[in-house]
């Protein structure tokens, strides 16, 4: 049977196209353009060649042993030098020419220590507008060993969140020490000595029991109210519901 003319024509065109594609793909194009492995290897190389801006704490220790050993003992022991001083790889390379940055501004410390209700409880926070306004933080606190000048008189220096909550609650007039006894050491090294917490129902009953003396405290029958549960399993003592 004769091959139709159309097929002959198309066969030539198809052969040319396929041949051309194959030629380009497998002969003309260098392997470096089509090899994923090579592309990836060179991407990794390029990534690794990127400049480092933060030298890392160990680099700082090599020269500044005095400061860093002091920092390692204080509250800021977990901080990286460059967290405050900024990226200092250039300083580490060339200590004479490039001087490190040091934040002396009053705006800087509140980035961490300004009061913010979303910050975890117990993280030391102050209210920057009320806390010695205008004075730079570093006049009183050494950032490399930030011990308060005097042991804080007010619990709110660290427990601002609780203080702010309690201030608007019906327990606003109660002192922290009404319910907690605070060892003196807690004010210097907070985690070495914890304040006490009430541990019995009877403690709350002291004010809220039927027979208790304070007249304006809401009264309940301790024998029936709450069953076997402790008071603070339902009520948050720093913000008791009802009048908050």
């Amino acid at each position: 049977m004769r091959i139709p003319e159309q097929i002959q024509r198309l066969a030539i065109v198809t052969a040319v196209i396929i041949g051309g594609v194959l030629l380009v793909r497998f002969v003309l194009i260098p392997r470096s353009l089509i090899s994923d492995d090579l592309h990836r290897a060179s991407t990794v190389q390029r990534e690794l060649a990127k400049p480092i801006k933060f030298a890392g704490s160990t680099a700082c220790q090599d020269c500044h042993e005095d400061v860093s050993s002091r920092v390692r003992k204080g509250y800021h022991k977990n901080l990286s030098c460059e967290g405050c001083h900024g990226p200092e790889a250039r300083h580490a390379e060339n200590p004479m020419e490039v001087k490190p940055f040091a934040p002396r501004d009053r705006k800087f410390c509140p980035l961490c220590h300004g009061y913010d209700p979303s910050r975890p409880t117990g993280f030391p926070q102050i209210n920057p507008t009320a806390h010695n306004p205008i004075k730079p933080c570093i006049t009183c606190h050494n950032p490399h060993d930030p011990v308060p000048l005097t042991a804080p008189q007010e619990c709110s220096a660290c427990h601002a969140q609780i203080q702010r909550t309690k201030a608007v609650s019906s327990h606003a007039l109660l002192q922290c020490t009404t319910c907690h006894s605070v060892p003196a050491q807690h004010k210097k090294t907070p985690r070495s000595a914890w304040p006490s917490k009430p541990d019995t129902r009877a403690f709350c009953g002291g004010c809220h029991g039927k027979e208790a003396t304070p007249k304006d405290a809401p009264k309940i029958d301790m024998s029936t109210h709450g069953g076997r549960f402790l008071c603070w399993q339902c009520h948050y003592p720093h913000l008791p519901e009802g009048r908050g």
Binding site: P4, E5, Q6, R9, L10, I12, V13
Partner: peptide, 10 residues
């Protein structure tokens, strides 16, 4: 494609 065949068969 320089085809020429216009016969009924084609």
């Amino acid at each position: 494609l320089f085809s020429t065949d216009v016969s009924d068969r084609a």
